[in-house]
């Protein structure tokens, strides 16, 4: 408001001079008055605002980057855990194989079964299903019985190692669900098998 006082004084002086003149002439239009101070002040305010905005933006960006890093790390950790679980499950699902028309466990099969024990011992709530299968030779009907006996032999071994019998279901699909197609020994040998599946507790598996 103080900035206006000199302007008013000048205006008043002009009026006095004019009224004193004998031949009054219309006063010239007032010159536009430019106040450099107020312009500077406005510019400063704008700059200050932009600076604050930039700072805020930078903060937001930094926070977002940090958040993304945190999320990525969490995801990576979850992925590593999931991979470890998947690996454990895959290792657990490792099938065992049998000789033609036989259900007794070969040494490799025993080793594969031994490798499943730590997971079973670390997860007492886990229930599993062993599915017995046969190759396409032999009678369709008799092969269901043979697959059942193969799965039962695997269960018996795990029970002998201290796993509770009621945690293990056994089923047989005979020759009806081959793992490998074909009518040669390479297909047959992959089909004479028992498969292992976690049916309860697979989501909350604790690694041994």
């Amino acid at each position: 408001m103080n900035a206006r006082l000199p302007m008013l004084a000048a205006l008043a002086a002009t009026v006095l001079v004019v009224s004193a003149c004998p031949a009054p002439t219309p006063p010239p239009p007032p010159e536009p008055v430019v106040n450099q101070d107020s312009i500077d002040a406005a510019a400063r305010a704008r700059a200050e605002q932009e600076r604050l905005a930039a700072e805020a933006e930078a903060r937001r960006r930094a926070e977002a980057e940090a958040e993304a890093r945190r999320r990525a790390e969490a995801e990576a950790a979850a992925r590593r855990a999931a991979e470890a679980l998947a690996a454990a499950r895959a290792a657990f699902a490792q099938a065992i194989y049998y000789d033609y028309d036989k259900s007794d466990l070969k040494p490799e099969a025993r080793a594969t079964l031994d490798a499943k024990l730590p997971l079973l011992r670390a997860n007492a709530n886990v229930r599993i299903r062993i599915a017995g299968h046969t190759d396409e030779r032999g009678s369709d009907a008799y092969n269901i019985a043979l697959g059942q006996r193969r799965a039962a032999a695997a269960k018996r071994y795990l029970v002998d190692q201290g796993i509770a019998a009621d945690r293990i279901d056994v089923v047989s699909f005979g020759e009806d669900r081959p793992a490998a197609m074909g009518s040669d020994e390479s297909a047959w040998s992959r089909n004479r098998r028992a498969e292992f599946e976690i049916i309860v507790g697979g989501e909350t598996l604790r690694l041994p």
């Binding site: 009907a141 269901i144 019985a145 059942q148 006996r149 039962a152 269960k155 018996r156 056994v170």
Partner: peptide
């Protein structure tokens, strides 16, 4: 029919 868990 045939039925069983360990042998049928």
């Amino acid at each position: 029919f045939s039925s069983g868990v360990d042998g049928t």
